[in-house]
Simulated scan of single mutants.
Amino acid sequence: KIMKRLKCDLSPELTTCLKLADSIRPDCCVVRDRIPYDAQCFMRDISRDLNKLYKRHEKTFVKSKRLMELAMPLHPKGRFVPKCACPFKKTIEIIPADYPSNTRTEQLALPTVRRLLHRRKHAMAIGDKIGESILNRWLRYSYMSLYSRLANMQPLKKPQKKKKPSAKDKKRHAAYIEKLSKAKVAQEPPAPERKAGDFSERRMKKLARPKVIEVVEKPDWELTPGMKSYVASDRIKTMAEPVHRPDVHTNEEPEKVSPTALKYKPSARIKEMSQPLAKNDATLAGDLKEDPFSISPNALKYKPSSRIKELAEPKEFENTHIRENPFAISPAALKAKASPRLIELAKPKGS
């Protein structure tokens, strides 16, 4: 019996849906020579993964001819229905699985390494070998992409197993834990070097030394040979000249009237303001008196209060700097003894 399948089908074994009669799939052609399993156009790992995928498909699929017939679409003109490659003139181009992704869009579309690692961990936990191999391939693509290289993404390293502590290490660790578990003892303050009232003899000798004052004497000025032969540069001569600033506020002819002032015509407001203030008779009568030295009757009738009289009296000031006997010497001055410094200051200058 001749087995029939799609020419574009490269599976090593026929699936359940391809074992139907030609009347169900009339667009398929007869394939007499099967493609070997280890074809050179496929890599071994991809072929092995495909074989595992088909085996899982066979196990999970219900092998019933009636169900397969019902599963076929009535009008196979959909967008995603595969067609046989026989009507095409060109041969089928086999694209390798590890096709390099060079474009920016393809590399940006790759899943992130973090998500792939999380999904691979889940696949390893449930024992999905095929999913793990697919995720490993995607991880290789994502690691080798341009953006992973720019981000310096590094593959995971196998964690190193911790060495089991020896008996000596356990003993040392137990001693360290016991040391840490002890309560801290408060330190006592250090004893003072000397008792109250004592003094340091060395300190007193240091304080008794006279203070040394260094007098910085300026050297006497002298005319050096370099000064004698010095020639001032043009820049020094320019800077040494006094600055002459023209006095713009000085008027050469102060008595001359400008032509603009001669042609000026005052406005009505200026003329009004230039008029002297007019004084009426009432104002003139108040300003001028017949007898300017006369006292008004109200001032003659005024009676000062006690406070006014108190303030009117002259204030007496006591002069404490004038002594009764300015030539008398105080007893304290007679008993005083002159110090060497006073005797030195009392000597005439130059003696």
Rank of each mutant, 00 (worst) to 15 (best):
M144N: 06
R44G: 06
R44A: 15
K55W: 05
H249M: 07
E69P: 00
R235A: 15
K228I: 13
R202M: 09
L14R: 04
A183R: 14
G226E: 15
L223G: 04
P326Q: 13
K77Y: 09
R209V: 01
R5P: 00
I134G: 00
E132A: 08
P82E: 06
R194Q: 11
K182F: 00
E344R: 11
I95G: 00
E253M: 07
H321W: 12
V81Q: 13
H249W: 09
G127L: 10
R341Y: 03
A208Q: 14
P12A: 08
P190E: 14
R172G: 03
I343M: 13
Y143I: 05
H249I: 00
Q187R: 12
P165K: 06
R104E: 11
E214V: 14
K170T: 01
P348F: 03
D234A: 15
L6A: 11
A299W: 12
L53F: 04
K347M: 13
K55S: 03
W221T: 03
S306E: 14
R115Y: 15
I308W: 02
S296A: 15
H321E: 15
M43W: 10
K218E: 15
K335C: 00
P190A: 11
L18A: 14
R66V: 11
K55I: 06
F293V: 07
G131Y: 01
K265M: 05
A338K: 09
S200A: 12
N102G: 07
K121W: 11
E217Y: 10
V243A: 09
P259Q: 04
L110V: 04
K211F: 03
I130Q: 07
L108A: 14
S351K: 15
L288S: 02
E324G: 07
K4C: 06
K4D: 09
A333I: 05
G286I: 00
S229T: 10
Y99V: 01
P246Q: 08
G226P: 01
T16F: 12
Q107D: 08
D128N: 07
V62G: 02
K157M: 13
T238Y: 02
K205D: 13
I35W: 02
E255T: 13
P165Y: 03
M204E: 15
G197R: 02
A346F: 06
E222Q: 15
K59E: 10
P246Y: 07
I329K: 11
E13T: 06
D45N: 08
G286Y: 00
K315G: 00
R209N: 06
L117N: 12
R120L: 14
K65R: 12
K171P: 00
R194Y: 09
A328Q: 11
L14N: 04
V243E: 12
K158C: 05
L180W: 02
Y176G: 01
